[in-house]
């Protein structure tokens, strides 16, 4: 096969995958005075599949600092996680990553 055909099909600019262009979204969990700490730890483990220690770390961050950034992901994934957290009645919001 002639080498020239390769150069004809090669794009001038390196392709950038669509996921690289997508903005990322943060899922933030906010503190509230009603959810039990053990419950919040359980929810983090269930929703994100985290270990107990990682879930506890984020739970304490929520408890002591008022909020914790749980994850940065595509809008679709972030929506999925926020939905899961809200099903458990945690105070979770979506934010565009800056």
């Amino acid at each position: 096969m002639p080498r020239s055909s390769q150069s004809q099909t090669k794009p001038l600019v390196d392709p950038v995958s669509s996921t690289q262009l997508e903005p990322l979204y943060r899922v933030i969990c906010w503190d509230d005075p009603v959810n039990l700490m053990d419950y919040v730890t359980h929810v983090f483990q269930k929703v994100f599949g985290w270990s107990l220690s990682k879930a506890q770390k984020h739970m304490m961050e929520v408890h002591e600092e008022g909020q914790s950034i749980l994850i940065r992901d595509s809008l679709e994934q972030a929506e999925h996680y926020a939905h899961q957290l809200q099903c458990y009645h945690l105070n979770a919001t979506l934010h565009r990553d800056t």
Partner: peptide, 25 residues
């Protein structure tokens, strides 16, 4: 409405202005 941050914590004002986030919310 659990999607509203608890009063006393500064909310991200982009929630109300970003149409994508409004749809998502």
């Amino acid at each position: 409405d659990v999607s509203c941050p608890i009063v006393g914590i500064e909310a991200d004002t982009s929630i109300g202005t970003d149409p994508i986030l409004e749809d998502a919310t």
